[in-house]
Design a binder for these strands. Structure first.
Lengths: 309, 309
DNA sequence: GTCACCCATGAAAGATATTTTCGGTTCCGT
DNA sequence: ACGGAACCGAAAATATCTTTCATGGGTGAC
């Protein structure tokens, strides 16, 4: 009655220093010969499908392998864990690693029959790539010059059409919020009409992916000739629009394909550039911009609190 | 059709099919505002030290955070898991990934005196993070359902105001291009006026980061009551707007700071969601969409060639 | 300012899952 | 065949997780 002898299994035994990293399959192979039949079955199942086993309880795994709970626990001990619970945690970790390991399949184009989850992954990956490329390819000198011009501008006009028009509006909204005078123009006629009003000290920005959108180039040309500081945000650094641009900000675009038109990925890069312009200007005009930023932040924070549930 | 009141506690809505991948920190950030103090404490602890928390039992984590077991379980539920056990498994997986993967890539906030090159790098990194988090946190079931509804819709209305309004327009432009009938509304009155026209088989989409923009919720409510299929694209899965949404698509947002307002990073996630919707619909309606896509591709290609210089 | 209500919270009961015990069974060596 | 030992699973014992419920604090209405 005195001797309560616990089954301490061999293997990594009582004082195993490291529980186990990720080389679980290897350990299973190493220890396999010294295992009994039942334990072996459990160990095999575990090594074969870590993810699946991680989802099972002791009882579940016991049933799956046609053994008992006790055997499952014994297996866990043999593999160096204090109990099944810990083995299960390690298994979950292993599964996560395996999952993250294989993911280079995103490089393919989006196909018509791709499952929706793949679409999400591919699109996200693609836009991330666009961001990285644009950031890397952005000429900070040009950017700094554009920011300086904006920060000191009397007024700013932004031209863009189609998808680029939305980017133009985005920039305008932000600049307005920190006290600058900015307008976005999508209507070519109105754009030119307004461009005539510009003069030295004003800024005109043209946003066009192709760099060849006449309706956007024209107002920029007018502004340029009027003496305004002109900026082009384009994906084609050698295109026509740059002829009338004092500063050229280049966006990178990833491969386009049938299901992912150029407009889609260009937009991402354009927005990054526009954000950089905005933050740059906000830094330069911090004294004036800070209250406005704080105000909009406050407004939002208030909203959040008022919606506790 | 008026009385559908959802009372699901968790943010991720009715039947979140995938428990959660690895974007746990993002989810915590997303849901934080709708959390109570205690739950928030637990969620923070978990997000901060996944590895450490994975080693703790319910009781342990409760003690560590100075709360009760019940609260810990509640937190797990809120984060989208059936119970603490499953959260713990996910935590173990996350920890393993972190350990094997690269450093957590600490991002400091953008400071007033950051050089412009740093601004570019930080903004780019931040938006990349937002994309990754949004992609990981997106409920593909909901997305697929929304796509189905869109593909078969008689007409589609999209509501958005401010920065979200631009996203709404972006979606509308794209849908129009592949032959769907879609309208974007920024004017609350006109939006409601139009929403009244909707009926079963139509689709209404509300885009709002805070999920509490009354001017956007109101038309969605009207559309909902009229029997249209309603979709909400929001950063707050538990917010008011989801009450009238058949399908909720959640966007993740990165930390916001003074120089990087919420509107900025939310836009990135919203656009990704919108792109996914578009591509999904294009796949579904490929027969009809293909010619339209090819046409716009052609047009663009032509433009490029015509501007060699 | 007071009251009533609601909701977050934790203590403890209840339900599961894990670990241990223990006796039956099989297999090996003699 | 027989003794012995190790393997194995059923079930008890324990740990862990989940649910329920009463309480307190706070909030909005009056």
């Amino acid at each position: 009655m005195t001797e309560r002898v616990k089954e301490t299994f061999g293997g990594y035994g009582t004082g195993a220093p490291p529980p186990a990293p990720a080389a679980l399959a290897a350990k299973v192979r190493t220890l396999a010969p010294s295992m009994t039949r039942s334990v072996q079955r459990v160990a095999e199942a575990v090594a074969e499908d870590p993810a699946g086993c991680a989802a099972l309880t002791v009882t579940g795994l016991a049933e799956l392998t046609g053994t008992s709970e006790a055997t499952v626990v014994r297996t866990a001990r043999l593999l160096g864990y204090p109990g099944y619970r810990d083995l299960r945690l390690a298994l979950a970790g292993l599964a996560a690693q395996q999952r993250s390991g294989r993911a280079p399949a995103i490089t393919t184009d989006i196909a018509v029959d791709d499952p929706i989850a793949d679409v999400v992954a591919k699109l996200a990956h693609d836009e991330q790539q666009t961001l990285a490329d644009t950031a890397a390819g952005l000429d900070t000198t040009q950017l700094a010059a554009a920011v300086s011009a904006l920060a000191g501008a009397r007024r700013t006009d932004v031209y863009g059409i189609g998808a680029s028009g939305l980017v133009a509006q985005d920039l305008t909204q932000k600049l307005l919020r920190i006290g600058l005078i900015a307008h976005a123009h999508s209507d070519p006629h109105l754009a030119v009409t307004n461009a005539v009003q510009l003069r030295a000290g004003d800024v005109a920005i043209a946003i066009t992916h192709s760099g060849a959108t006449g309706d956007v180039i024209e107002p920029l040309r007018v502004a340029f000739e009027r003496g305004a500081t002109t900026v082009a945000v384009t994906g084609r650094p050698g295109s026509s629009v740059t002829r009338y641009a004092d500063h050229v900000l280049t966006t990178s675009t990833s491969r386009e394909s049938e299901l992912r038109p150029a407009a889609m990925s260009s937009r991402t890069g354009q927005l990054l550039v526009v954000d950089c312009l905005f933050v740059g200007v906000a830094q330069r005009t911090y004294e004036a911009a800070a209250p406005a930023l704080a105000a909009s932040y406050e407004a939002l924070a208030h909203r959040h609190r008022s919606v506790p549930r």
